[in-house]
């Protein structure tokens, strides 16, 4: 893990969830497509710094549904809700991400 802000940490939450639902190899391939390298513990080793981490999170969420289908949408969004609540971060701040 190189640097963590709340969006990068949210991306790791998604990575962990996809590991559990779709397996490591499929998840890693998907993340590589977005220039993000993750290790076997779903930690981010390298990521695309040409866009903001917020935009990176949104890009992953948008593409994820195309790649994995509707189950991925449901299971990762609930993971994000849990993560934000656990961190005492208002969900209002993320309405555009969570809808």
């Amino acid at each position: 893990m190189i640097y963590v802000d709340e969006f990068l940490e949210a991306i790791e939450v998604i990575a962990k969830r996809l590991f559990g639902v779709y397996g490591k190899s499929r998840t890693k391939v998907f993340f590589e497509k977005h220039n993000i390298t993750i290790d076997d513990n779903a930690k981010i080793l390298k990521y695309d710094k040409s866009i903001t981490t917020r935009d990176l999170l949104i890009r992953i969420l948008n593409d994820m549904e195309k790649e994995f289908g509707v189950v991925a949408r449901i299971t990762t969004k609930t993971a994000l809700i849990s993560y934000f609540l656990k961190k005492n971060i208002s969900l209002d701040k993320f309405k555009d991400i969570l809808y």
């Binding site: 962990k16 559990g20 639902v21 397996g23 299971t75 849990s82």
Partner: peptide, 13 residues
């Protein structure tokens, strides 16, 4: 080792 994530995925929603 990753089954906990699968469990959370089911129960959370």
């Amino acid at each position: 080792e990753w089954y906990k994530e699968a469990v959370k995925a089911f129960h959370e929603h």
